[in-house]
């Protein structure tokens, strides 16, 4: 009875938390009316262009007059019907490639974008192979000394008793004693 009630309380509690968190996230994110798509595109471009005379600041970050001017030009060109690509090319022509906040995914600069995912995949593959080798090595070591489950519960209970006595488990006040239900690993030191 207690168990059922506890489970129900737990479920209600977690549900309440979910609803609260979701409401918080939503209320902060959905409270603004959508801006004109032109302004949104302009702001995206602002973030994608670097102010040429500032040390690495994008147009939306920089406070200098040139950056404001460039922002104005961006909006004008968008209103004229130019595409993002054309506007970017316009600035690259005048200030060089460094005016783009990140290199285009073409030509030599493709390697900027390709190397990280390739590296990540490579790393993960190596990790998997290493783990597999380690585990296989372990299995090879074990041989006769199989550490797996003792046959009967009675045997296990006696086993645990000995362990409890030896380790003074009566002093154990740490960690979730619920551990009998799950294999949670040691109680101390996480």
């Amino acid at each position: 009875m207690n168990l059922v009630r506890n489970v129900a309380t737990r479920r209600r509690g977690s549900l309440a938390l979910v609803v609260l968190a979701a409401l918080l996230a939503w209320s902060s994110c959905a409270s603004v009316a959508p801006q004109s798509s032109l302004e949104r595109r302009a702001q995206a471009l602002d973030r994608g262009l670097i102010c040429p005379i500032c040390p690495g600041e994008s147009l939306d970050q920089s406070q200098v007059a040139l950056a404001k001017q460039m922002q104005g030009v961006v909006r004008e060109m968008l209103a004229d019907g130019r595409t993002e690509m054309e506007i970017e090319d316009f600035f690259v022509e005048r200030y060089g490639q460094a005016v783009l906040a990140a290199p285009r995914k073409e030509g030599f600069n493709l390697i900027v974008w390709v190397v990280p995912p390739v590296g990540a995949l490579g790393g993960l593959t190596v990790l998997l192979l290493v783990v597999r080798a380690m585990v296989r090595g372990r299995r090879g070591q074990e041989g006769i000394m199989s550490p797996d489950a003792p046959e009967s519960d009675a045997g296990l209970a006696r086993y645990l008793e000995i362990v409890d006595r030896e380790t003074g488990a009566a002093a154990d006040v740490g960690g979730p004693p619920d551990g009998s239900g799950e294999a949670r690993g040691g109680s101390a030191n996480g």
Partner: peptide
């Protein structure tokens, strides 16, 4: 990947002779 982003402009300068910025979008 962070180091790569920091170092790439130097690589680009060395191999392409062109200065690029690797910023937030990356």
């Amino acid at each position: 990947v962070t180091l790569w982003g920091v170092v790439y402009p130097l690589i680009s300068q060395a191999f392409q002779g062109v200065m690029v910025t690797v910023g937030r979008p990356y």
